[in-house]
């Protein structure tokens, strides 16, 4: 299946970006073949609504799951509407996060892990 991992860089060896809406990159990985594409996130500097717009990006990319550090309420509601499962608490490199996901070590989050504006640093 296709999964989206928030990343600070554009490779599988890049560290996971702990933020969802304002992550630098989305790595869209086929969890079986490990084939991937990197999508630069235009919402990094959005004035508002970054989580919602970012949810749209990963849903349009066809991802069925998101692996990230934290996910706020608006992003979580948007991803749920698009039928995407959210796994928070991902860390290490993108590749390590996918491996943990494949071995069932990550559990889907029922709700947002942080409040609004977590990723803005204020």
């Amino acid at each position: 299946m296709k999964i989206a991992i928030t990343s600070t860089g554009e490779t599988l060896d890049s560290p996971v970006d702990p933020r969802f809406g304002r992550a630098a990159w989305f790595i869209i990985v086929d969890s079986d073949s490990m084939e991937f594409e990197a999508i630069a996130n235009d919402n990094v500097g959005a004035a508002g609504g970054a989580g919602i717009s970012s949810a749209k990006v990963v849903i349009d990319a066809g991802a069925e799951a998101v692996l990230t550090g934290n996910c706020g309420p608006n992003a979580h509601r948007s991803l749920a509407a698009g039928g995407v499962k959210v796994y928070t608490g991902a860390a290490g490199t993108v590749k390590e996060a996918v491996e943990k996901f494949n071995s069932g070590e990550l559990t889907a989050a029922d709700g947002p892990s942080v409040g609004s504006h977590f990723g803005t640093g204020i």
């Binding site: 508002g48 609504g49 949810a55 698009g82």
Partner: peptide, 13 residues
């Protein structure tokens, strides 16, 4: 411009 409405296919939030 504010992501106040967004459509995921026919699921509009």
């Amino acid at each position: 411009q504010y992501s106040a409405i967004v459509a995921f296919k026919k699921n509009v939030l």
